[in-house]
Design a protein around this nucleic acid. Structure first.
Length: 480
RNA sequence: GGCCCCAUCGUCUAGUGGUUAGGACACCGGCCUCUCACGUCGGUAACGCGGGUUCGACUCCCGCUGGGGUCACCA
């Protein structure tokens, strides 16, 4: 039997980092087994589902490289188009007396729940309507038709349900602990636990991969599947991704959407690599290509305990991918981040590549790289006052001035080689050490005390801008 | 509270009865050096507690403690 896994986001918001990890694991498992990865859209909540969320989720999934074999835009993979199917299954259960109409109102139920909590009893439905007779041809709930009741599933009250989880092992649930959950709402729409069971069966999902917050639902879903005559799928419940305080990862800890990381200058390779290693491991290996992930992935190597999301490690991975990818690619990828700041790149692609090459070991993200590139990209720079006070002193005025004219006099290619000989000439003439000249020059041409190697910077900056900035610094010293 | 689950450095983890408990991030120090990085070398740092089982427990069992998930006409 070919493996079929699925990822089923709700289009009610951005693609969440913790959620997408489950999707990634489902994807890897499918690919590892040469199976299919299915994308289904759980959009039964018409109130909160939006087209924008859907678009964002689809583009971000593609950006991460989680390509699906079946799913949107095929309309069959939207739950909202399957309402009749769910209602048909509800009717089937009703006919077989495995489900029943419940006439309790939300107000009543709420009151019962509160009372139960107060008396320290379990706040479960008391099955009041389960014994009631109902007509064989009972019509399904439909709010517009004034049929404001729900349909509940008649859960077995004895025996046990066993969950053999691929990552967590065996768990046994007493059926009497499970309650009669609503499968059809009073407006006729199915609830999640009902719709998902039917979908997994219809789409022939063999392995349900999801967060372990779904574990308590699983025995209920297994019972519903059995009642419907389905063979339940296998389950793999992944531990949660948490913040440093152990609570599920939320905006309060860090950025939680894939989109935020994308816009923050992270690479999909880094995010995927990081997420894969959070809760899964393969010996001591830290860096994994997509192919390696697919080749090695296995639920047996997944941990059972929750993992803390660690931005530092993600940054380290991102840095790894930043400094090892081809410069041409990096230059291409950094462009939108420059454009976003409204900066026109003062050079061609070859120039941009040279610029990027000098910065790639000094930035962990594309955003950081652009932050660092200001003195290359902008025509005018601002000189840091503290740096100027420390390095642009009267005694360096002459050497800077001479260096400016030496550089200006370079006849051939204005490359690092030429720059270096100009420096050496000035150094010899004034009896200075490189450090004594390099720092003032650095301040003069970058505005600060931190930059790539001074010859590299000048090489990228070019003759005109270097000389101009040097002369401006000389003037600055003169003026005091 | 009921049910289910989890527990190795600060963090991600390796480890499946006998190891100087390994790696990675972060952190600290040396080296490299025109600054900052990169790189490189080294360092600090962990088996939650108590009982068993065993010649021997990080590894197996029980309890405790701590933590998490879930108890909707949300997914």
């Amino acid at each position: 039997m070919t493996v079929r896994t699925r990822f089923a986001p709700s289009p009610t918001g951005s693609l969440h980092i913790g959620n997408v990890r489950s999707g990634l694991f489902a994807y890897l498992y499918a690919r590892h087994n040469h199976g299919k990865f299915i994308l289904r859209i759980d959009d039964t909540d018409r109130e909160r589902s939006t087209q924008e969320s859907l678009d964002e989720i689809l583009t971000d999934l593609k950006w991460l490289g989680l390509e699906w074999d079946e799913g949107p835009p095929d309309p069959r993979y939207f739950q909202s188009n399957r309402l009749d199917r769910y209602r048909g299954s509800a009717r089937q259960l009703l006919r077989e007396h495995k489900a029943y109409p419940c006439y309790c109102t939300p107000v009543e139920l709420d009151a019962k729940r509160k009372a139960a909590e107060k008396e320290r009893r379990k706040p479960v439905y008391d099955r009041k309507c389960r014994g009631l007779d109902f007509p064989p041809e009972l019509e399904l709930p439909d709010r517009r038709a004034g049929r404001n009741y729900t349909i509940r599933f008649a859960m077995p009250t004895s025996g046990e349900t066993v969950l053999e989880d691929l990552v967590r092992g065996r768990s046994v649930f007493e059926n009497r602990e499970l309650d009669d959950l609503v499968i059809l709402r009073s407006d006729g729409a199915p609830t999640y636990n009902f719709a998902t069971v039917i979908d997994e069966a219809d789409f022939r999902i063999t392995h349900v991969v999801r967060g372990d917050d779904h574990v308590p639902n699983t025995p209920r879903q297994i019972q519903i599947a059995l009642a419907l005559g389905f063979t339940p799928p296998a389950f793999a419940h992944l531990p949660m991704v948490t913040g440093p305080d152990g609570a599920p990862l939320s905006k309060r800890h860090a950025a939680t959407s894939v989109r935020a990381y994308r816009e923050g200058g992270f690479f999909p390779e880094a995010l995927v690599n990081y997420l894969a290693r959070l809760g899964w491991s393969h010996g001591d290996q830290e860096i994994f290509s997509r192919d390696e992930l697919v080749e090695y992935f296995d639920f047996a190597a997944c941990g059972k305990s929750p993992g803390v999301f660690n931005t530092d490690k993600l940054l380290w991975l991102n840095f790894h991918y930043l400094k090892t990818r081809p410069v041409a690619q990096l230059a291409r990828e950094v462009k939108p981040f420059i454009a976003q700041r409204g900066i026109a790149i003062p050079g061609d692609d070859a120039w941009l590549e040279k610029m990027v090459a000098t910065l790639r070991e000094r930035a962990k993200t594309l955003v950081e790289l652009v932050d660092f590139a200001g003195f290359y990209l902008n025509e005018k720079i601002e000189i840091d006052l503290k740096a100027a006070a420390k390095f642009l002193k009267p005694e360096i005025k002459e050497p800077l001035s001479v260096l400016a004219s030496e550089l200006d006099a370079v006849a051939g290619d204005f490359n690092e080689q030429a720059v270096q000989s100009a420096f050496e000439g000035v150094l010899a003439k004034f009896g200075l050490k490189l450090g004594q000249l390099a720092q003032p020059v650095r301040v003069a041409i970058t505005g600060g005390t931190v930059s790539p190697g001074i010859y590299e910077v000048i090489g990228v900056l070019g003759k005109r801008r270097t000389v101009e900035r040097l002369n401006a610094a000389v003037k600055m010293i003169a003026t005091g």
